[in-house]
Nucleic acid binder design. Structure first.
Lengths: 335, 335
DNA sequence: GTGAAAGCGCTAACAG
DNA sequence: CTGTTAGCGCTTTCAC
């Protein structure tokens, strides 16, 4: 079952390998007749180009590394779909790694990807600053880096794709207020994630604007699993801090919060409204369905892929930050 | 920022490239002194082997293709984790594709992977028979194929990793009966999925054993989304078919079913118990938490990866079918 | 113990 | 329009 190479075709047709190559590449300097013969033979013998050889020639690995914090929520799956949409048709391979929300794993993943000689890396961080040195080092070695969703704090020379956390968070909080909620609690996620800080800022601004901000109503979590969401609500509950609604950093945290409420027979949205930021399928799978800021995840992946391609094609291309529009989707968990 | 090659080292140390190569490969025919010099220089200049060149020499692409039906539930994410655990440390890259539960997409994915010259393909089907011709063709072209979870009906020369659907389904149904349920409804999923048929058979056997089988209590769905789960329960409800419990083919279908019950104020498990087959994180994220047959997903991925490695190393290695143990996990959705 | 040379599959000057 | 040749980075005979 040996593979057919250009050499086999060359023998088969008594032509030089270069002519075969040219015909296959649609080079103009080939007789139409000859091209046809080559094409037919290639089809007949089942010739398929050897990507590895191509890559060796071109000096590229045609491999893009991707680092995501986790894959058990649909968030990354959707973004990956976007990345794949753009990159697979172009013959790029993806090496996808999961950091499990752990900066140390992220570091290992990045190093693994370096070992793979990737042409570029697309990454969603799990910690704002922890691996800054590595990002910097990778970029200065000439491997383009593109950040999406959770981006680093330093102004690295890298392109980014994000949604406006501050604005969208503000809008969601304002919506809750408009529906009559006043004691809006906020589960902000870990403060080592830039977006968490941004969203919390949006929350604070609006709460202050309406003079209803209360420091007790905001809580940082150490992690991102739904257990932390649960624990946050338990905290307020234990301390007898009143709240009539919850705005969570992510679907997962919101769902954890909902579970606590449901377990304690607290009506959603009757007694407490719940809203989140993310907008993955999870928000429609729970009961009641979750109001959330829905991000264009597939688009986000596609954009990230295009940004990395720009950088690969021209390493001196200027870095861009693309801001994508999100929409608020109102569902049964609020009102 | 040019990469350091073996040639650079050769110039730098005034040694032949072959000696450098040998030193790097720990070949015995190298003076210890020389080896040390080479190693030091490699470290100093930051030499990293070019995988593409290695691959060209070895004739392998060091790339494994993976095809999964979907990635929005944690199911595939967990299996992928297992696959990555085994394959990444060995220098393999993964090209992961999603079929979106559509056999046509599956076909396209397989063809894409062929174009990538993958060394092997690990696949979870979305239809039992639809692409049988392609599986056969890929195998006979010499590309090993390993199936996991949902496997094909024909006896192809390929290894497989599965859990025993029939037995575990039986066990779960028997458990429901032991907790006092008699009218156990079954959402079996599409009958074009072999596992759905197997699990339904397990269900039927036990229901018959206790003489409580009723054809009306079993329903096939066209798809796998949670909407179909919802619709199934609506069907029984509309037709006034009584049931005191539901056993669903997957977490997602079960959750759809739960949502219908919750929307109609039917108590879980008070009035209706719910159980599923899958055992992803989803089962712990919903309220009440879902009783389910929990499969060892990471292990499944690791096993699939090892099976494909066997085949890659020795193309004539015999095909194996590995049966993994699942466990029933009892949660609040049943009593 | 080390070097020279060939070759993996392909493309691209360079000739003719 | 077609063929010859060299070379991408590396390993591996084959000499010495």
């Amino acid at each position: 079952m040996k593979r057919i190479t250009i050499k086999d075709l060359s023998k088969f047709l008594s032509l030089s390998t270069s002519t075969i190559s040219r015909a296959l590449l649609n080079d103009k300097n080939v007789n139409d007749e000859t091209r046809k013969r080559v094409m037919d033979a290639a089809a007949e013998l089942g010739y398929k180009p050897n990507l590895t050889a191509l890559n060796l020639k071109s000096g590229q690995s045609k491999t893009i590394g991707v680092v995501v914090p986790e894959m058990i929520t649909p968030f990354s799956a959707k973004v990956l779909e976007g990345i794949q949409n753009v990159l697979y048709p172009l013959g790029y391979r993806l090496v996808i790694t999961q950091s499990d929300e752990n900066p140390l794993n992220e570091r290992k993943n990045l190093q693994l990807l370096e070992g793979f000689n990737v042409d570029g890396i697309i990454i969603n961080l799990c910690h704002e600053t922890y691996n800054n040195d590595l990002y910097q080092q990778i970029i200065s070695q000439g491997t383009p880096l593109v950040f999406f969703d959770r981006i680093p704090d330093k102004s690295l020379n890298a392109s980014k794709v994000i949604v406006d956390d501050y604005i969208n968070s503000s809008l969601m909080v304002e919506y809750l207020i408009k529906t009559g909620r006043k004691r809006i609690a906020h589960i902000m996620g870990p403060q080592t994630i830039r977006n968490a800080v941004e969203r919390a800022n949006g929350y604070k601004r609006i709460m202050n604007k309406y003079h209803i901000f209360d420091e007790n109503l905001i809580i940082k979590t150490e992690g991102m699993t739904f257990e932390y969401g649960k624990r946050a609500v338990k905290h307020w509950s234990d301390k007898d801090i009143e709240f009539d609604s919850i705005f969570a950093f992510s679907d997962t945290l919101a769902i954890g919060a909902m579970n606590f409420l449901l377990e304690n027979n607290i009506k959603i949205p009757g007694e407490v409204a719940v809203a989140s930021f993310s907008g993955t399928e999870l928000s429609t799978m729970v009961y009641p369905q979750l109001t959330s800021v829905q991000q264009p995840l597939v688009k986000m992946g596609e954009t990230a892929a295009e940004l990395i391609l720009e950088k690969i094609r021209d390493h001196s291309a200027p870095s861009k930050t693309v801001l994508l529009d999100a929409v608020l989707v109102y569902r049964d968990s609020t009102l």
